[in-house]
Design a protein around this nucleic acid. Structure first.
Lengths: 206, 206
DNA sequence: ATTTAATCGTGATTTTTTTCTCTTTTTGTT
DNA sequence: AACAAAAAGAGAAAAAAATCACGATTAAAT
């Protein structure tokens, strides 16, 4: 049996995961769907439906086992599968992401950074070296990196993306505001901070 | 006539906005719904439906006026309404966000940062001062800040959030992985980088 | 002037997602 | 042992979102 997990579901799964982590830290063994639902402001049957998707059975009157559920989410979302990534653009955001160690716990290994500024080359950030962008094709292959985290200024975004695709990168996590043109076999995820911000503050009327 | 804009729509609107910016930079006066749709891999009628929501009419055989459409999106998403924000947690991410000037173009003004580390106090980052967290209630009032960008380490997240709410912050843009407990009149937006990452790389099967 | 093709606008349809409702199970209480 | 309460599970219903389909319009081509 195999099913695709919709975006909405995997988004909720990570929120459940965070709540579970908190419960486990406090040595609470069980959690119920209404508890989670109330915390997130959603319907409790929604929570149960999501857990059903994980094939994770709960117990009536008791709820779900926190540790079991957490493992289940981690397995489903592949926390344990290592995924190698590079950061392209060693500016403020790129460097901040390079220093963000929590990524490791979710299977994301940042291997190196790339930039075109000669002043930044060969510096190490959080044990990750910054290389000149021209080294990209060799290094992607050497580091076995599938994912590129794109944090260059907007005007360079498309050109760098093209170069990444040439260099055999398969996933682009796009932190630039540019909407990239890519062939169908390349997956792009737009991390649009501006969009998030506007969505959240402009829940108003037209 | 007034309508709430669904999240999905405002998310697409920002993507349209980015494409429009690119067209305008290249002095292209018109854009058609199939052009946009193809770029984003969505249906063209979807694009037209979204523009309908903006009350922005297109012209058959020609498309939409790029500048008009861009203005329309900016008006709808309130790019021009100034919104004052503070960053709480002057770590890597907090500092990177403080240095990210593009926020201004979308009406987000970052006024100051807060941290509990005495070593960081009174330093300026991108013309924004870092204050001790104890100054928060006074400064929120003084700066007329409604929005808090939360970038503290996870274990402090809930306590700081409680303090923010006491200090009359109304919106919390939560960059921590914690799922915050807040009263109903406080709006939280979880910027879950991990969730994004997992959604995008784990589009696979259970 | 007529034809052709591109595109808008929109109602209908389909698909997806969420919520509702009801039954069953289980645990604690009387 | 019977009962009450809490929660899971599952199917039905409702709501939301996306897609389809097609007529109307218009610019360019013949």
């Amino acid at each position: 049996m195999s099913k695709v997990i919709p975006d909405k579901v995997s988004n909720r799964l990570t929120l459940y995961h965070s709540i579970l982590t908190e419960y486990i830290e406090n040595d609470i063994e069980h959690i119920s769907s209404p508890q989670i639902a109330q915390r997130l402001g959603i319907d409790d049957s929604q929570v149960r439906k999501d857990f059903k998707l994980l094939n994770n059975a709960g117990k009536c009157r008791v709820g779900y086992l926190t540790t079991e559920l957490k493992d289940s989410i981690e397995k489903t979302l592949r926390f344990t599968t290592a995924k190698n990534a590079i950061i392209v653009g060693a500016g403020n955001l790129g460097l901040a992401l390079a220093k963000y160690d929590s990524f490791n716990s979710y299977g994301l290994n940042i291997m190196a950074l790339f930039d075109n500024d000669p002043q930044k080359i060969d510096i190490s950030v959080n044990d990750k070296q910054i290389y000149h962008i021209s080294k990209l094709p060799i290094m992607v292959n050497k580091l076995n990196a599938e994912i590129a985290i794109l944090t260059v200024p907007r005007p360079y975004a498309q050109k760098v993306a093209d170069f990444l695709i040439e260099s055999n990168i398969r996933y682009i996590w796009n932190f630039t505001p540019a909407v990239l043109k890519v062939p169908p076999h390349i997956k792009v995820w737009n991390e649009n901070l501006i969009a998030s911000f506007l969505q959240f503050t402009c829940k108003e009327l037209i």
